[in-house]
Every structure is written in structure tokens, then in C-alpha cells.
Design a protein around this nucleic acid. Structure first.
Length: 538
RNA sequence: GCGGGCGUAGCUCAAUGGUAGAGCGUCAGCCUUCCAAGCUGAAUGUUGUCGGUUCGAGUCCGAUCGCCCGCUCCA
């Protein structure tokens, strides 16, 4: 990682226009609307040349740091290096996987709409108050909301024309009422009865059909809504075949799909998106320490690639917003970014969840396959001095990052308006993730300069081309070329000028122009590659 | 899914119901020795799509698709 490039101060994203950012993304080929020439398709976005490379750089950085370097070479809370192994699992799995994980059964929350007030409620949150007899009008309210409940009681008493004791009142969950009673129910915020719709289920999983016969019911399968389950169901395989020992992690990068109720906010809530997930397994006694470790490590990692300052924060979930799998865990935290469209609020970038043994337990029950780990380092000491060992289901800490959300955050963070420069805006990508690593220009397209520039371009491309684009540009004026590179976020431009090719004190030197400061310095052409290597952190 | 706003060239936007335009960008040429300089020229549009009203629709009406905002939701 480069420590040579000073990280300029982060600009508050509340001052950036998302429309302008989206416009630049299109103009410079970062992000296009999917299927654009056919009118687009709601919730899908494609990456243009610069976006594709930017996304790859972020994915590679995660893969290298989290997996290959074991959390950037950190020492875990156990004092040992962190061990992570990669995995690459299918988007389509046996549908039973999603029954076990809970994605098919309990998590498509049914919703009810109120035709009168246009409000929408989670059906399982709505309670219905009636007279104990169950006769007459009934009044819905939001369970747990005292004001809403008091209002319902007041309305019911007015309807009954008398004060009612608790015994004279019945409260029933809406979902347990017969549909033919709905006509007598007054919505929580409504005046008339019968305005609530029947509860409607939202299944967020994409159904698909496996097999050429296309039998929708018999051969129904799903595109995965998260990569995590592919990891859990291979936990035993990885333990049995790779000599890993607890604690260790398994990581998977790949596409996931969710039929979001409302795709919104550019690529933030896409229906097809890419996740970078790690399931880190450890003994239950150590889970809390590992949870803290991953929380802090992941926050530091995002800072290391250019997200920093007030636009980034780490937030612990309140207990009442914990997901189904995290109820028994030590907690859930989100790394959140202040996107321009959420500002002054923040939106999720990565979640770090203590899932306890929820998933392994579920898969063990549903598959009838023992997924326990035999830990030879634990248990009572046997007479021979060796631990007897302990058999248990490991607990799991899950740092799960959204790759597309990461790209979006990097773009928003990099976007830097600057009225003083010709481009009026530049993209201040961290050199490590910048899609264009360097550009080489002849100051003017004559006098032997293009030849020297092309030679330098060849050299740099050969050495750095695998990390990103190395551009050559001789068109128009050098000012335009600098401006173009500013908008694309290229950190360094090398220019061959008259002094490079003429005899004199500066023969064989070039100027390097720094994107962030627009300052130029002169260096021998022979040192350019090493300079770039150091700046890119290679 | 509901409500509101919007949809014209790559981008930003004009065009009273009457011939679809400008700026910027892009490309070509000239010029140019360090920040979108200048000159000349060029390409790019079924005005998101479909239908209707009209002698005539970018403009009015309807539907549809997409984007933005609010509500709602978010494993």
C-alpha cells in the first residue's frame, strides 16, 4: 500500500451532487445503464472500461489483503497470523440450501397496504383491536407503538360509545384474521374501514428453472441471495481437505441476486450485485474477540484504500435491528459510507456480523450431515499429557462487503470538484485502485518526442499493465490531456518535452505531473518505473 | 407497490402546436514547448417506447419503460 501519496482531506459528500457523479460515470465510461438501448432494466447496471478495471482493482485488493495476506498480515487476537482460504461456489444451489438458511421460509415479510392513506405496514407488526365479542368495526394499530395502540383504543371506545375495560377488548394479530373480516378493519392511520389490502409476500429470491424441460414447479431453483451459504455448506469439505485448523476463514467473491422491492440510488441497491464475503470460524469462547478484531480490521481496510474522514463510520447495530442469524451473536456492525444520496445519513458498505453457529446448525439439521469440528487443542488433558480434544460447532464471524457498493463509495469519494482546474472536477482515486495507473505524453507531437514517449509507454505497460491501464496520448494540447486524465482519475502523467530529447542538463529527464496537486517535478526517465512502482505500492 | 418530478446528440441544456438547435466533449487537419488555447472541417437524434387528438406533436392526452425524490422495505 502506498504511503507516499498524501491523502488529501475528505470532502463532505453532502456537498456533492449525485446527478453530476452519475453524469461523469456515463461520460467517462465508468458505469452504464444495463440494456440501455432497449430502455434499460430496473435495478441493473453495467460497468464500462474504466469501471470494470476499477471494480477489478477493488476486488483484487480485497482478495490479496483479506485472503492471501491473511487480513493484511495482521496478528489475530490469539496472537497467531490470520488464516483465510478462498472458495468459489455456484450461484445456483440445491433449493434445500435456502430452506435451511431461512431464505425461503420466514424472511419474505408479508406487507399490507392501506388504500386510503397509501401507507404500507409489515403485516406481522399490525395488531387488530376489537370488542371481546369480535363484532363490529375493528381498529388496527402498530404493535409496540403505544401511541398507535392508544389511538386504536380511543377509536374503538368511541365506536362502542362506552369506556371498555381490558377484559372487554380483544387484540388479534392481523395475520391471524380471516380475509373476509378485513372489511371491518380500520387501518392504523385510516378513517374508513376496509382499506387494508390482503397481506402480500415479497420473496426477494430470483426463481429459476433447472433442466431443459423447464418445469417451473418441479425443477424450481433460485439464484443465490448471498454467497455465504456456499461457504457454510462446504465448511466440512474445506476442513477435511486443506489441513486448516480453527480459527480460520473461508472467503468467496461472487454475484448475488435479490429482487429488491425498490431498486434505488444508482448502483447502491442493484438486483444483481457482487459480494466479497468471508466466514471466519472460531470457538464460541473466542467469537467475541474475533468479532472485535474483524470490525476494526475491516474499517481500517476501507480507510487504507482511500475512504476516510467523516464520510466513513463504523456503527454497531441496536439489538432490535439484528438479523435472524445474528440474534444469538455478540453483535453486528456496519461499515457505513455517507453517499451523496444518503447524506447526512450513511448507507451500508460492509456488514460484520456475529452469526454464532446459526448457519452450521441449520445445515446440519437439514442435511443430516455432521458439521462439527474436532479440535485437538481443547479438552481435558489425558494421562499421556495430550488434550482429549473437543467436538463442537464453530461460531462464525462474517465480514460481508458489497463490491459494487465499494466501487460506488470509491467513486463518490474520489469525485472532487475543483473550479480552478480546466476539467472543473477530478477523480482522486487512491493509486492502488485507480483504473488508469499512468499516462505518457509527448509535450508536442513532433521533434522526436513521440518516439521517446512511446518507448516509455511500452516499458511502463509491460511492467504495470497487469495492474491497470497505462495510457498514451498525443492528441490536441497537453492541457486537454491532463484534463482528460483528471476526470479519469489517473494519478500520474509523464511528459516528454524538448529538454528530454536535446543535449543539456535535463537530457533524458521527464516531468511527472501529480494529479492531486497538479505540480510537476523532473526526474530521469530511467527512474520513472521505480517511481511509479513505489507510488502504486507494488 | 403508492405519490411527486423528469426523459431532446456522448454530457449539460434550448426550441409559442408549424423546417430539431446550442455549448462542451469526440474525431480529422493545421497550429501548439506544460494545464480543456486558437483556426478549419466532420460525425452523432426514430425527441425513451407505443398509441391517440390534430392539417400538423419534442410540445397536448393515454399507456408503457427507465431515472430521481418521498413513503415503504432491505438477509
Amino acid at each position: 500500500m502506498s504511503d507516499a501519496t498524501p491523502q488529501p482531506k475528505s470532502i463532505d459528500n453532502a456537498d456533492k451532487s449525485m446527478d453530476d457523479i452519475m453524469s461523469l460515470c456515463k461520460r467517462r465510461g465508468f458505469i452504464y445503464q444495463a440494456s440501455e438501448i432497449y430502455g434499460g432494466i430496473n435495478g441493473f447496471w453495467d460497468y464500462g472500461p474504466l469501471g470494470a478495471q476499477l471494480k477489478k482493482n477493488l476486488r483484487d485488493a480485497w482478495w490479496e489483503d483479506v485472503i492471501m495476506m491473511g487480513c493484511s498480515g495482521a496478528t489475530g487476537p490469539d496472537g497467531e497470523p490470520v488464516e483465510i482460504v478462498p472458495l468459489d461456489t455456484c450461484i445456483i444451489q440445491n433449493p434445500k440450501v435456502w430452506e435451511a438458511s431461512g431464505h425461503i421460509g420466514g424472511f419474505n415479510d408479508p406487507m399490507v397496504d392501506c388504500r386510503e392513506t397509501k401507507s404500507r405496514y409489515r403485516a406481522d407488526h399490525v395488531q387488530v383491536m376489537s370488542q371481546a365479542s369480535g363484532e363490529g368495526q375493528m381498529y388496527a394499530f402498530i404493535g409496540g407503538d403505544d401511541a398507535s395502540e392508544a389511538a386504536a383504543r380511543k377509536k374503538l371506545e368511541k365506536y362502542a360509545r362506552t369506556e371498555l375495560t381490558d377484559d372487554q377488548i380483544a387484540v388479534t394479530p392481523l395475520v391471524e384474521l380471516d380475509l373476509d373480516v378485513y372489511g371491518r378493519v380500520v387501518g392504523p392511520d385510516a378513517k374508513e374501514a376496509g382499506t387494508l389490502t390482503a397481506p402480500r409476500a415479497f420473496n426477494l429470491m430470483f426463481p429459476t428453472v433447472v433442466g431443459a424441460t423447464g418445469d417451473v414447479e418441479d425443477d424450481k431453483a433460485y439464484l443465490r441471495p448471498e454467497t455465504a451459504q456456499g461457504i457454510f455448506i462446504h465448511f466440512k469439505n474445506v476442513v477435511d481437505t486443506t489441513r486448516v485448523k480453527l480459527p480460520f476463514g473461508i472467503a468467496n467473491v461472487g454475484k448475488s441476486f435479490r429482487n429488491e422491492v425498490t431498486p434505488r440510488n444508482f448502483t447502491f441497491r442493484s438486483r444483481e450485485f457482487e459480494q466479497m464475503e468471508c466466514e471466519f470460524f472460531c470457538h464460541a469462547d473466542d467469537a467475541k474477540d474475533w468479532y472485535q478484531f474483524w470490525r476494526d480490521s475491516r474499517m481500517a481496510w476501507w480507510e487504507s484504500i482511500g475512504l476516510a474522514g467523516a464520510n466513513l463510520r463504523l456503527r454497531e447495530h441496536d439489538t432490535d435491528e439484528l438479523a435472524h442469524y445474528a440474534k444469538d451473536g455478540a453483535g453486528t456492525a456496519d461499515v457505513e459510507y455517507k453517499y451523496p444520496f444518503t447524506a447526512p445519513d450513511y448507507g451500508e458498505l460492509e456488514g460484520i456480523a456475529h452469526r454464532a453457529d446459526f448457519d452450521l446448525k441449520q445445515h446440519q439439521e437439514h442435511s443430516k450431515v455432521k458439521l462439527e469440528y474436532f479440535d485437538t487443542t481443547r479438552g481435558e488433558l489425558a494421562p499421556n499429557g495430550q488434550p482429549e480434544g473437543e467436538r463442537y460447532l464453530p461460531h462464525c464471524i462474517e465480514p460481508a462487503a458489497g463490491l459494487d457498493r465499494g466501487v460506488l463509495a470509491l467513486i463518490c469519494e474520489a469525485y472532487t470538484p475543483d473550479p480552478d482546474r480546466p476539467s472543473k472536477v477530478f477523480m482522486r482515486f487512491h493509486p492502488r485502485i485507480a483504473p488508469i495507473k499512468a499516462a505518457v505524453f509527448p509535450l508536442v507531437a513532433k521533434g522526436g518526442m513521440p518516439e521517446v514517449a512511446l518507448e516509455l509507454h511500452r516499458e511502463l505497460r509491460q511492467r504495470f499493465g497487469k495492474y491497470g491501464l497505462i495510457e498514451y496520448d498525443a492528441k490536441q494540447s497537453v492541457g486537454k490531456r491532463y484534463a482528460r486524465m483528471d476526470e479519469a482519475g489517473c494519478p500520474f502523467c509523464f511528459t516528454i518535452d524538448g529538454e528530454t530529447v536535446e543535449d543539456g542538463p535535463n537530457k533524458d529527464t521527464v516531468t511527472v505531473r501529480d494529479r492531486d496537486t497538479a505540480e510537476q517535478t523532473r526526474m530521469p526517465i530511467s527512474q520513472v518505473a521505480d517511481f511509479l512502482s513505489q507510488k502504486l505500492g507494488l
